[in-house]
Simulated assay, not measured.
Amino acid sequence: MSGQPLLSVRDLTVNYGHVNAVRGIDLDLAAGEITTLVGANGAGKSTTLMALSGLVKKAGGSVQFDGRDITSLAPHKIVASGLVQVAEGRATLTTLSVRENLELGAYTRSDGAAARARDIEHVYSLFPRLAERAAQMAGSLSGGEQQMLAIGRALMAKPRLLLLDEPSMGLAPIIVQDIFRTLRRINAEGLTIFLVEQNVKQALKLAQRAYVIENGQVVLQGSGAELLGDPRVQAAYLGH
């Protein structure tokens, strides 16, 4: 990686009681790239993301974002700094409309209604179904539409780094293709993405850089293409 990473994680450790969920991992994310973290269920992927977002307590280690130490920042301050997470399970506000969900995504911003309205239109251009359903309650959307809304709401916070936790979970393959195509597009527009994903093949095809985590430790790293072709990854995750 040339130059200073946008996100630099050193010796990150997270414990749940006596369980070491994440055990001293190092990660570097380059600005403008898609990086993925893949591994089996229970390997520590989601815990890693939640620790970066400040949603679970770190037992040790440091997190630097754009040269600033955010290790101990509160979650809302981490969002305000430009690091925004789309949670596993989508977590849309089901009794609010699509548009209200999107407006809430901008709660940390102070750049005025016109800028926010422009960004809502941009989200609608990324996900035309959300425009069609702008006045509908979020709870009435399909799973795929809720995932689109969760991503759109996160984009409304104007992130510089978007964390995504299992965006394909429970969705039909055609919807997954749609969502991955949109992730490629928003990355091409300049947004850095850190993706945790159970669909290892899709994730490695999408990502420029990849890490494999097992039992809370990074065991392999390289480009997405390198790991896609690695016999160990193929045997463990791709059924080859």
Rank of each mutant, 00 (worst) to 15 (best):
Glu88Cys: 04
Ala210Phe: 06
Leu27Phe: 14
Ala188Glu: 14
Ala43Tyr: 05
Leu204Val: 10
Leu130Phe: 06
Ala59Pro: 12
Arg133Asp: 11
Phe180Pro: 03
Glu100Phe: 01
Gly54Pro: 07
Ala117Ile: 01
Tyr124Asp: 04
Ser97Val: 02
Asp66Ser: 15
Gln234Ile: 13
Ile175Ala: 01
Arg118Ala: 14
Ala203Leu: 10
Asp178Asn: 11
Gly61Asp: 07
Gln234Met: 12
Gly44Trp: 05
Leu37Ala: 07
Ala59Leu: 03
Val196Gln: 09
Thr95Phe: 12
Ala21His: 08
Gly190Ile: 02
Ala40Arg: 12
Ala91Gly: 08
Ala188Gln: 14
Lys58Arg: 15
Gly229Gln: 11
Leu228Trp: 07
Leu162Gly: 03
Leu183Pro: 00
Ile70Gln: 02
Ser72Asn: 15
Met148Gly: 09
Thr47Asp: 08
Leu37Lys: 02
Asn101Arg: 02
Leu37Ile: 15
Gln147His: 06
Glu121Val: 06
Leu227Tyr: 07
Glu103Val: 10
Arg209Glu: 11
Ala114Met: 01
Glu214Ile: 06
Asn101Tyr: 09
Glu197Asp: 11
Leu27Met: 14
Val38Thr: 05
Glu166Pro: 13
Ala157Ile: 02
Met169Tyr: 01
Gln221Thr: 12
Asp69Asn: 14
Ala138Leu: 02
Gly222Leu: 09
Arg129Phe: 01
Pro159Ser: 10
Lys205Arg: 14
Asp178His: 10
Glu226Asn: 11
Asn187Gly: 04
Thr94Tyr: 01
Val14Asn: 06
Pro128Met: 02
Ser125Met: 00
Ala43Val: 04
Asp69Gln: 08
Leu52Ser: 00
Gly61Lys: 08
Ser46Lys: 00
Val63Arg: 09
Arg68His: 13
Val9Trp: 05
Gln146Arg: 10
Leu6Phe: 03
Asn215Trp: 01
Ala21Cys: 04
Gln64Ala: 09
Leu6Pro: 08
Gly139Met: 02
Leu55Cys: 09
Glu88Trp: 07
Leu73Cys: 05
Ile34Arg: 01
Gly60Tyr: 04
Lys158Gln: 15
Ala172Pro: 04
Gly60Arg: 06
Gly32Glu: 03
Gln202Asn: 13
Ala210Ile: 07
Leu52Ile: 15
Ala21Ile: 01
Val196Asp: 03
Arg209His: 15
Ser81Lys: 12
Gly61Gln: 09
Arg90Leu: 08
Ile25Asn: 05
Arg99Ser: 10
Gly61Pro: 10
Glu103Pro: 00
Arg181Ser: 14
Gly224Met: 04
Ser62Ala: 14
His76Tyr: 15
Pro5Ser: 08
Val9Thr: 01
Gly144Asp: 11
Ser2Trp: 00
Ala21Pro: 04
His18Asn: 13
Phe194Gln: 00
Gly42Ala: 06
Asp119Arg: 14
His76Ala: 11
Val86Lys: 12
Val200Gly: 08
Val123Glu: 07
Leu104Gly: 04
Thr108Pro: 10
Val84Asn: 03
Pro159Ile: 04
Gln198Ser: 13
Val176Met: 00
Val79Thr: 15
